[in-house]
Structure formats: structure tokens, C-alpha cells
Amino acid sequence: MTAAPVRLTARALLLDMDGTLVNSDAVVERCFSRWAERNGLDPAEVLAVAHGRQGHATMALLLPDRPAELNLADNERILAEERADTEGVVPVPGAAAFLASLTGLPHALVTSADLPLARIRMTAAGLPMPSVLVTAESVGASKPDPEGFLKGAADLGFAPADCLAFEDSGAGIAAAKAAGVRVVGVGPRALPHHPDAHADTLTTVTVTAAPDGLLTVTVG
């Protein structure tokens, strides 16, 4: 039996990038598998927690006794590798039409990527960059800390409770929930983390705006 569509209302949308708008899994897997091997770790265990976090936060989680300066140095190395590697970077199905439907509506990108990487990946996927951006440089703490989503809501001029986040990872969903933002989970990684609604891809998501600006997001 097909599930009935889920409808949520919001005043603004907060959009993760990797795994939500852009499928960059191939690059992440290549770069973090190399890092895992350099540090004597199982690549599968690293990749199980790498999605959604800034690189140094992943490293701190996996190697808690490692000096922070080494994690930050490795983070810069991985970012450089990721910026140079766009092979396999493609839009999540439905992402282009979804972003086009948000033209003129309040929305922000809230990503753990830094600004150069975000621009490279959105361009590689052929997607337009939202005008309001919260990137790694914008925050002092990585997802699952809520800072990015709190900043995104504030930059758009709305309370977190009036926003709706789109996320694919456990870290991202936890960050949104901690900020008091409801979440539409996108893709298979999101489903185990109990988002408020779930879409296999963005092809099943529509957004309509009422004259008063209230957004209705239909999933399914």
C-alpha cells in the first residue's frame, strides 16, 4: 500500500547540500577511505560516521585522543582533495526542479562543506547556489551541533520553529532537531533517524506558497 502524502507548513526552508541536493558519495568515500587507511582505521567504520559532519569533527569522533591541530591539518588536506575531485558528483534526482520551485521563496543552504567546496559541488551538479549560505566558515561547531541551522534561520529572519530542514544524515537530522527545526529526511541514510517526513528523492517533494507567504511542503 502506498503511504499517504505528508504535508508540512513552514515560513522558510533550510537545505543541506551533500546527500540532499548533491550526490557526492563517491568523492567522500574515496577521500575518507584514503584517510582511514593512512590512520589504520577501517574505511567502512569511518564512512559510517563521516556523512554530514565537517572532516575534523569526524576525526575527533574516531580518534578522540588525537591532537586537534592534527585533525585540522588533515581536514584541510581532505578539503583540497575533495575540491579537486568532482568525478561522480551529480544532482539528487529532482533537485533542479525542487530548487527552481523555491525561486523567490525564503531558503538557505546549511552545509558542512566550506564555501569553495560548496560552489564546486553545486556547479558540478548543475544546480544554482542559494543566495543565503551557511558553510563551514560560518560556524564554530560542526553538525550535529545546531549552530548552523540556528544561523540559517536567523539569517532568513525566522524562528527555528517556523523553518523546515532537508537533511540526509544522522548528524544533520540531529542538528536540525537540536535547533528546534522540523526535518524532511532525504534518501536512505535519513530513514533510521526519524525525520518528520521522508522522501526517497526530491522528485516526490513539492512546495507551494500561499499569498501570506506560508509554504506547504508535500512529501509523497
Rank of each mutant, 00 (worst) to 15 (best):
M1V: 13
T2E: 07
T2Y: 00
A3E: 13
A3Y: 00
P5R: 06
R7M: 12
T9N: 08
A10N: 06
A10F: 04
A12W: 08
G19T: 06
T20R: 01
L21R: 03
L21T: 08
V22Q: 02
D25Y: 04
V27D: 01
F32N: 10
F32Q: 13
W35G: 03
W35Q: 04
A36D: 08
A36C: 10
E37S: 13
R38V: 00
N39Y: 13
N39S: 08
L41S: 02
P43D: 04
A44F: 00
A44C: 00
V46R: 07
L47S: 04
A48D: 13
A48P: 08
V49L: 04
A50N: 05
H51T: 04
H51V: 04
R53W: 00
R53L: 06
Q54H: 04
Q54F: 01
Q54R: 15
G55F: 03
M59S: 08
M59E: 08
A60W: 01
A60H: 05
L62V: 13
L63G: 02
P64A: 13
R66A: 06
P67R: 10
L70M: 14
L70D: 15
N71L: 06
N71V: 00
N75K: 15
N75Y: 03
I78Y: 03
L79Q: 12
E82L: 09
R83V: 13
D85R: 11
T86R: 06
E87P: 06
V89P: 02
V92N: 02
V92P: 14
V92Q: 02
G94W: 02
A95L: 14
A95S: 10
A97L: 08
A97V: 06
F98D: 11
A100I: 05
G104P: 00
L105N: 04
H107I: 09
H107F: 09
H107Q: 12
A108E: 05
L109N: 11
L109R: 05
A113I: 01
A118G: 11
I120D: 07
L127P: 13
P130N: 03
S131I: 03
V134K: 09
T135P: 06
A136K: 15
A136D: 02
A136I: 10
E137D: 14
E137G: 14
E137I: 08
S138N: 06
V139I: 14
G140M: 02
P146D: 05
G148N: 09
G152V: 11
A154N: 03
A154I: 02
G157D: 07
A161W: 01
C163N: 06
C163E: 05
C163F: 05
L164C: 12
E167L: 12
E167V: 11
D168F: 05
S169L: 10
I173R: 04
A178V: 09
A178I: 11
V183Q: 03
L191C: 00
L191G: 00
H193T: 07
L202T: 10
T203L: 15
T204P: 11
T204G: 13
T204E: 14
V205W: 03
T208S: 15
T208D: 15
A210V: 05
A210L: 09
P211F: 11
D212F: 04
L215I: 09
T218N: 10
G220P: 07
